[in-house]
């Protein structure tokens, strides 16, 4: 039955044959069974006595977290500035390397589909697969703790992100605008600068700002592995169970993220 073949793609609200119905229900059942089995696995590794305690623990935690220690903010301005620097300088470095990589990876601009493109794609995938925190972990071992490790960790993670989204944008540009320049006798670099760059500019701006926004959040936790920023204070406060300080840090992070989100929305609006 041809209708049966299409069962997977048929929208759910349509009336199905019995066989299709059966398949859909089996699919749901299998999905639920998988989730339950997985939960069973997690549950085996959980000390439930602690969990039943959680509401009480939570209430306890909250009572210890409030009021926040406002005076602690004085010691946090410098780490906050560091956090912003980690995100911003890391993003800038990532742009510096990511943009050329994107042009090397895009089908319509790569110098060689057979050799250069696969190598660049591998670099992009490797950079993207590894979380900034893991990059930071490795870099802290090599460079020692500090802001530099944080900046480079953010940069290494963001290169692949920026390059991937940008090369997808480059591959989607309107080829007729490029053809027109080529027909006028423009050289390859000129075709790139006049025909392609203006077309990908909005995408580029959007991607950079988007990544910067993500990086602000990521930069807040790099300090947990010693890579600088406000996460260092967070780690120290948690280790000494100084919960009012933790609350203060959370408030500052909340403020910073709100500002960065507002700023990136403004920039995106201005450019597009």
């Amino acid at each position: 039955m041809p209708i049966l073949e299409r069962a997977g793609g048929t929208p759910e609200w349509k009336r199905r044959t019995t066989a299709q119905d059966l398949m859909v229900w089996t699919g749901w059942l299998a999905g639920v069974a998988l989730a339950v089995a997985c939960f069973q696995f997690i549950s085996d590794r959980t000390i439930w006595a602690f969990v039943w305690d959680a509401p009480q623990q939570g209430a306890d935690l909250v009572s210890r977290m409030f009021p926040p220690r406002w005076s602690y903010a004085d010691q946090l301005w410098k780490p906050l500035w560091d956090t912003i620097n980690i995100a911003t300088l890391g993003t800038l470095i990532a742009i510096l390397f990511g943009v050329p990589l994107a042009f090397l990876a895009a089908h319509n601009t790569t110098p060689s589909v057979l050799f250069v493109r696969p190598v660049v794609l591998f670099i992009i995938v490797a950079s993207r697969s590894i979380n900034a925190l893991i990059w930071a972990l490795i870099l802290v071992i090599i460079l020692g703790p500090g802001v530099l490790a944080g900046i480079l960790a953010i940069a290494l993670r963001s290169i692949g992100f920026i390059a991937k989204l940008l090369y997808e944008a480059i591959e989607e540009i309107d080829p007729s605008q490029v053809e027109a320049l080529r027909a006028s006798g423009a050289s390859n670099p000129q075709v790139l600068a006049w025909g392609m760059v203006p077309q990908v500019m909005p995408a580029f701006a959007g991607i950079s700002v988007f990544r910067w926004d993500i990086n602000i959040r990521e930069a807040t936790v790099l300090g947990l592995v010693g890579a600088g920023g406000i996460g260092m204070q967070l780690e120290a406060s948690i280790n000494t169970l100084a919960w009012p300080q933790v609350t203060m840090i959370f408030i500052l992070i909340l403020g910073m993220v709100a500002v960065s989100e507002w700023l990136s929305a403004r920039v995106r609006h201005a450019i597009i």
Binding site: F39, F41, I42, S43, R45, T46, I47, F50, V51, A54, Q57, G58, L61, L133, R217, E218, T220, V221, L224, L234, I238, F250, I253, L254, V257, A258
Partner: peptide, 24 residues
């Protein structure tokens, strides 16, 4: 959306103890 997953994980670990449940 404001807090990085790691920060939320710290809070959950404090509440339900170490292990995959906090991660979940």
């Amino acid at each position: 959306r404001t807090f990085q997953e790691i920060i939320i994980a710290i809070v959950f670990v404090a509440m339900v103890g170490f292990g995959p449940l906090a991660g979940m």
